[in-house]
Design a binder for these strands. Sequence first.
DNA 1: CGAACCTTGACAAGGGTTTGGTAAGGTAGG
DNA 2: CCTACCTTACCAAACCCTTGTCAAGGTTCG
Lengths: 124, 124
Amino acid sequence: MSGALTIHEAAETTGWSPRMLRYIERIGLLVLRRSESGYRLYGPEELQRLRTLRELLAEFDVGLTDIGFALRMRREPELERAVDAWFETEPRRPQDVPADEWLRWEQDKHQKLIPATPPTLEPV
Amino acid sequence: MSGALTIHEAAETTGWSPRMLRYIERIGLLVLRRSESGYRLYGPEELQRLRTLRELLAEFDVGLTDIGFALRMRREPELERAVDAWFETEPRRPQDVPADEWLRWEQDKHQKLIPATPPTLEPV
DNA sequence: CGAACCTTGACAAGGGTTTGGTAAGGTAGG
DNA sequence: CCTACCTTACCAAACCCTTGTCAAGGTTCG
């Protein structure tokens, strides 16, 4: 086999395990070409996306299912519209929420889960 | 208390349990006013959003955490940008990728391919 | 005052997610 | 032909999400 990498080679250069590479394909985050005999083929584009995905998850402390949901919203415009509509109904104005209360919530939320990344949030 | 409902009353008219109403607030999906003594106050807008949220989850079979992630993307533009960027199939230039990898890719470009299975998936 | 609310915090059970491992069988290439 | 890879399918441990419930204490109001 020449050219594209097989799953173990892809695992080495991307930092994912072969098991996770199959999982990532299974949840729809990456569509892979297959060789005639059914082997997954990882080209440079796929490898780069896998590396970027890794950084994305680490940097923002999100999970694969989160990205899976983002994908679902992109694929299902109805879903995206429904979610957008839900967020836009009756936007609560900032002065409705005391600033210190809001800050306290965000601190609590992150102090257990995300030690590394500070929220950097703006009052909407 | 000026017309707003307390948590048990809100639970009855929205179909959520009091426990879940607190949970929904905790994950940031709803910001509630509080009475002087700290009681959560549910006004007509909150009640409507809670009903809509219920329908949203049921209709599309998504979870509260999914909506929580959508909320995070709205609050953290960096995250949204990163996710959007990942989904873009960016045009791949050779310098994005190690030279030998690119070479192997070029050599393999015309290999016969088996189309990937459509990304619609059953749960594992 | 006392009943019936409310608050936060904690424990827990059931189910889904994540990730690895292993097994049975097909494929690639020296 | 042999070895090392690949495939799918299943079992499993560790974790997280969902949801209920209970405890200790504050509030409302008859």
